[in-house]
Design a protein around this nucleic acid. Structure first.
Lengths: 339, 339
DNA sequence: GCGGCGCGATTAAACCTTTTAATTAAATAT
DNA sequence: ATATTTAATTAAAAGGTTTAATCGCGCCGC
């Protein structure tokens, strides 16, 4: 490996000072146009590589933004990440991604690493049970945090997420309007704010329609296809013989439909199923999945925007920004027929 | 934000030198045990945060490893990433993730950013059409590169991938042994080494069985569910009426099966379908997908291991390391019946 | 009583860039 | 010709950590 080219290498070969080189490369108006061009040409010719860590040591701005979610392999987060990525791309920021798999421990390690690297900010979907101190750690050290998808009640951080309670009530109402009365809710947990909101939306819709809420119809579980698939057995053996299922998300819904098919029944004919999130996959599932658009791309975009704005100095109001979900009706839901 | 705590802050409050503090925090044997403990306690008490950029400026080791693949939302890469992540986790390295979406431009930008950050190494699944110079750039600047899933013919970099030709021939042979004679190959491109290998595997298997290769039965397309779904129409309208399809990967296969269902036929009864990769999802698809295990976890693990070894000094031999795929037979493939 | 040895701690330089204040050179005004 | 303004460049310090070289000191053996 040839020896490292630095500012001073360029300066020496050109017989000028490093200060001028530095200024020229940053396009400062302080340096004459033709010296600037000469410098840039030389930098290119020598294969100069800007040393960000030296620079950021001086400027205390690293250009690094951390993003941490539960699991990047989950398409729900994937769609959020994609939006964040494309927003950050056009702003010369590098982003560091991590999963926390709902381990508070892992999440804290990530925040610490990011602080060590001098991260400019962080966008997070916090792990279940995150203690507020972990975020205060970030803020205290000058690293602003923005929350997506989940909120932390004790903290007043800028948060972008869908209106879960409203969204699930949309799905539940849709099933009720099709004549269903025995409706199960499948997947997810009640230990997150999201979980409580969703359950609340389900309960509210049922109550409003005068349907009694049966706690046995709540089947929590993993928020994955696997989770939905596994829930199918339990679901089909319920004594109440539900005719419809409101699922935690599209993954659970697709898994559940697979499980139902495996048992010889036909989803979208014998059983109505709704999803949540409107993943790309929902439209091509069989049957095409009725679901609730949850605006993940919007969430990601707004969160990234908010962080960039804050880094640029503007301190926009904290608090929770809710995206209004919308119904997407497809073939997995049909009018009630006795089973 | 309270003012920054640095080594010298700790040193002053304790009336010792920063050198001692630095050594103590790195657990150097040069400092006495009880001073070390005192220092560590004080560091914790003051909320000291290690400044990695200052350190790496000095040591020229950043602890950062770059990972770039086509698309992290693709579960095939997701499984590789997960393996890399867990291997890197236990070694105090931070990893920076990026998609290149097969844009050589985006890939180069990423490599440059990584160099600026002083990345210690990079693991890549190179973009289609990557010019060798882009990797030489990395190597020249002391940043070793390891390839996964795809290779670059002109370069002798350490590469870990499945044996595609062999793997696809396994799938094709399986269908032939079930009596199928008109077998299509769906999805993917022939512009990557992977693509050419896979097509070769398909062709070889057919030839060996004395079946004529019909180029019309090759339907290239996006390597996604969407791609498979869209290919279904074309597939079903082929004049040759194929009774089976070898798909580029599980996503294409699942999409194709969805498309076939949508057209009123039953995959795993009317049409046999094989996937590739054995994603978690394959087992719970309906019907459960016959596919080829491609060892993504193994690929990721070995690649990470190889990079860490190289960073630790050992220069293991370059070249291509092939993982031997294995057949996973499930319900999506059935014996031939005239259609 | 002295040279030598080891332990524990320190000094000081180095890593590379940015930025402010200062300097020099050139242009304009008087 | 000199004084003043403007433009272009530079010197030097700062940013936080690591590490080779050095130092001080108590102790051992002779």
């Amino acid at each position: 490996m040839a020896q490292k080219i630095k500012l001073s290498t360029i300066a020496e070969t050109l017989g000028i000072s490093t200060a001028t080189v530095s200024l020229a490369l940053r396009d400062s108006p302080l340096v004459a146009a033709n010296t600037r061009d000469k410098i840039k040409d030389q930098a290119r010719a020598l294969g100069y590589i800007y040393n960000r860590r030296a620079a950021s040591l001086r400027t205390s701005r690293s250009g690094i933004i951390g993003v941490v979610v539960h699991d990047i392999m989950n398409p729900f987060y994937g769609e959020i990440l994609k939006a964040i990525e494309s927003e950050l791309d056009r702003s010369r920021h590098t982003f560091i991604l991590s999963n926390h798999y709902d381990s508070v421990e892992k999440q804290r390690t990530f925040i610490e690493t990011l602080l060590q690297l001098g991260g400019d900010g962080v966008i997070m979907s916090p792990a279940i049970g995150t203690p507020p101190e972990d975020f205060e750690l970030a803020e205290e050290n000058g690293m602003p945090a923005i929350l997506v998808a989940r909120q932390i009640d004790a903290l007043d951080l800028p948060t972008f997420r869908g209106d879960d309670s409203y969204g699930i009530s949309l799905a539940t109402n849709h099933l009720i309007s099709l004549g269903h009365r025995s409706i199960a809710m499948i997947g997810g947990t009640d230990q997150t704010s999201t979980g409580r909101d969703r359950y609340q939306g389900y309960v509210n819709a049922l109550r409003k329609a005068g349907i009694e809420v049966d706690p046995d119809l709540r089947i929590p579980g993993a928020r994955s296809k696997q989770g939905g698939f596994e829930a199918a057995v339990h679901f089909l053996s319920l004594p109440q013989k539900p005719t419809a299922a409101v699922c935690w998300n599209d993954l659970v819904a697709i898994g559940l439909m697979n499980g139902i098919s495996r048992a010889g029944l036909v989803p979208g004919r014998d059983i109505s199923v709704t999803g949540y999130d409107d993943l790309e996959e929902a439209a091509i599932a069989t049957p095409a999945l009725t679901t609730v658009w949850n605006g993940q791309a919007e969430v990601g975009r707004l969160a990234a925007r908010a962080l960039l704005d804050r880094l640029a100095g503007s301190h926009e109001p904290d608090g929770i920004h809710l995206i209004k979900p919308e119904m997407r009706i497809r073939q997995s839901t049909v009018p009630y027929k006795a089973r």
